[in-house]
Design a protein around this nucleic acid. Structure first.
Lengths: 223, 223
DNA sequence: CCTTATTTTGTACGACTGTTCAATCTAATA
DNA sequence: TATTAGATTGAACAGTCGTACAAAATAAGG
């Protein structure tokens, strides 16, 4: 599979307002359907129909299907990465970091967008879950998510100077997967537990869970 | 999507040895390709080619593609569920359960099969990851995995009588997703951490992580 | 306003999709 | 061994797939 994230090709004229709107509709539809059904589960024609455009337009704006997928994944990944780095830097100025604080800087930006940024951000978690599940997107995942992950691992490593970096990395990967599970499998948690109406403060629970896990994995001596 | 797990239809003659071998090859190929590329990413003809049979035979043995998928998922789910329940019951007779012990009974059976039971069990984790990522398989996932999950949640709930069942359920869902991440994203952990040659004892690390997470989530007072 | 880069439309293409089916072969049962 | 349920084969079906393309509509830049 492709590893390249498509770049804007050079143009001689600025795009019209209408054109930009259509582009946006196409990308949003693609994101929603890719998230719901995976890469080959969502056809170009499905995406076109959802965006209310003829099929040819999807190719025109998004390029080959693979490129469209990569772009849609990387688009929000970049925004998310920036938000996370910003949160981290802002927190750093308030004093020395704790593990809870680091994880909060990692989780909160996404969960915030998921709840206030509209349904697109919610479906984005499903999209990432598909990317993570499919080895064909390994390179795409590495490009989109590894740089930020490395930065956060560095911060955690500073708190546990004696710990193996591998263990810290594993902890963060587990944490990310737990966060994806929180968003994509809320129904599952609800089905397995007693129905509880309040949807608030899942974030606190998640951070508590992950922080304790990372803490324990990096202070316990392996058998 | 279908929710039904296909049953053996009634027959008047026992299947031949050759026929059983072909069936097995078809199911194994289907499992491997579904795991690698997802449901629509793996075509019936791909599966047939991998199993060295004509395409029509896949339909003959596996039924419609959906039924084949459901069967392939549920096949190992049943074996895995049995192994987990057995491990739990065996441990119960040794004395009162700890959280570590409960999680070990949940994780160890799979990781054991993944390392000794051949590559099929390894690819099965990917298959489950695809099922989890795609909301269209929600019912299938519920049928295959919820009964066992409920039993383990009950055991954990007995250790934390004051905790909300919802929190315990969330903890187990997080734990499962972490286990899937361990198997499907080992490369990612390796890429993010320093390369470390020993692949042993990831299980201990995982259990430590999840146990501490569940413990913390169920003893910390939510804000 | 005029020019023309760009967007939009509909059609068309060849490849592939899941599934069906009649014909043929194999082997379990009586 | 004879019978025939069942397995196997390959061809064929009607759709859908991703994509390319020419023609038409639109609107940015001069």
């Amino acid at each position: 599979m492709s590893i390249e994230i498509p770049k804007e090709k050079q143009r001689q004229r600025a795009p019209s307002k209408r054109s930009l709107e259509t582009r946006g509709r196409i990308f949003d539809s693609a994101e929603r359907l890719f998230a719901e059904r995976g890469f080959e589960g969502a056809s170009v024609r499905d995406i076109a129909k959802e965006a209310n455009v003829p099929a040819g337009l999807v190719t025109h704006h998004g390029g080959p299907k693979e490129a469209l997928f990569c772009y849609v994944v990387s688009r929000r990944a970049e925004e998310l990465a920036a938000a996370r780095i910003n949160a981290l830097n802002a927190r750093k100025e308030l004093g020395p970091l704790t593990l809870h604080a680091i994880l909060d800087c990692f989780f909160a930006p996404y969960l915030e967008k998921a709840e206030t940024g509209g349904p697109q951000w919610l479906s984005y978690a499903r999209l990432v879950a598909h990317v993570s599940a499919d080895p064909r997107w390994r390179d795409l995942a590495a490009i989109c998510f590894d740089p930020t992950a490395k930065i956060f691992i560095d911060e955690i490593a500073a708190l546990y100077p004696q710990a193996a970096r591998q263990t810290i990395a594993a902890g963060l990967v587990y944490s990310v997967s737990a966060m994806l599970a929180l968003v994509t499998s809320r129904w599952r948690v609800a089905a397995l537990g007693d129905p509880r109406p309040d949807a608030a403060s899942h974030l606190d629970e998640l951070i508590t869970f992950c922080a304790a896990g990372i803490e324990a994995a990096n202070t316990t001596r392996a058998s």
